[in-house]
């Protein structure tokens, strides 16, 4: 069953065509990684898919709900860790308080942050903040979770802890779409990889297919990482 179907998506900023006729599908339980050079349109694709940008053409069809983990976390600084996670389930989904609290504490435990529920975001490291923001997204019980370069704002020694969390979620068959620059991670964790270049999907397939492709741009791109 496909949870998300994007067809013929187009987006331009003034005269610049950022997305040219993008079509893709995300199946339930699938992990899709989107890679590509900066300016290739991968973040714009994610922002269109999540409704943060208005597409200029095409269709986006969802079966279910989605969450998004931002590059810069975007936690609410005036709320404690626990309130960051529970506020939307309580005030938006209007779920029962004891149930939401229980679930939030379980999520925090899973993220290794059980002792941080009373802390405020500024008191946490970048890696911890990103884990809170993943917990915040998961607390809404989304059918798909999007990640917009979740480790790009982190110090290199902190990216591992986030990648491990995502890997654990993949093992639980969480449906995820991940825009990333972590090539090894994309190779290891994904069921499907999309390589974007200049606003189009230049390669798509299994990690083996995409990373082994003869596409010149893909080779160039991977070459830069090898250096």
């Amino acid at each position: 069953m496909s949870l998300l179907k994007i067809s013929h998506l187009r987006k331009q900023f003034d005269d610049l065509e950022v997305l040219k006729d993008i079509s893709l599908e995300v199946e339930k339980g699938e992990v899709l990684s989107i890679i590509g050079p900066s300016g290739s349109g991968k973040s714009t694709l994610l922002r269109c898919a999540t409704g943060l940008e208005k597409p200029d053409g095409g269709e986006i069809i969802y079966q279910g709900t989605f969450g998004l983990v931002f590059q810069n976390f975007n936690l609410f600084p005036h709320y404690s860790v626990l309130k960051n996670i529970t506020d939307a389930p309580l005030k938006v989904q209007k779920r029962k308080k004891d149930e939401v609290l229980k679930e939030a504490r379980e999520l925090l435990k899973k993220m290794g942050l059980a002792d941080k529920e009373k802390a405020y975001p500024f008191q946490l490291s970048g890696g911890q903040q990103q884990r809170v923001s993943i917990a915040r997204a998961l607390a809404m019980n989304p059918d798909i979770l999007f990640f917009d370069e979740p480790t790009s704002a982190l110090d290199p020694e902190l990216t591992g802890e986030i990648l491990k969390v995502i890997k654990d979620l993949a093992a639980e068959h969480m449906t995820m779409v991940i825009v990333t620059h972590e090539m090894n991670f994309a190779k290891n964790v994904s069921d499907k990889v999309i390589f974007m270049d200049k606003g189009v999907i230049a390669e798509e397939g299994t990690p083996e297919e995409v990373f082994g492709s003869d596409n010149v741009r893909m080779k160039e791109f991977l070459g830069k990482f090898a250096e």
Partner: peptide, 30 residues
């Protein structure tokens, strides 16, 4: 206010009034 605060609120499903009253205004006051 950073635009990311509005975006995070939007993704979490807050409506415009909730976004202003719960997320934006308390931070503006400070």
């Amino acid at each position: 206010m950073p635009v990311g605060q509005y975006e995070a609120a939007k993704i979490l499903g807050y409506n415009k009034i909730q976004t202003f009253m719960r997320i934006i205004f308390p931070q503006v006051v400070k």
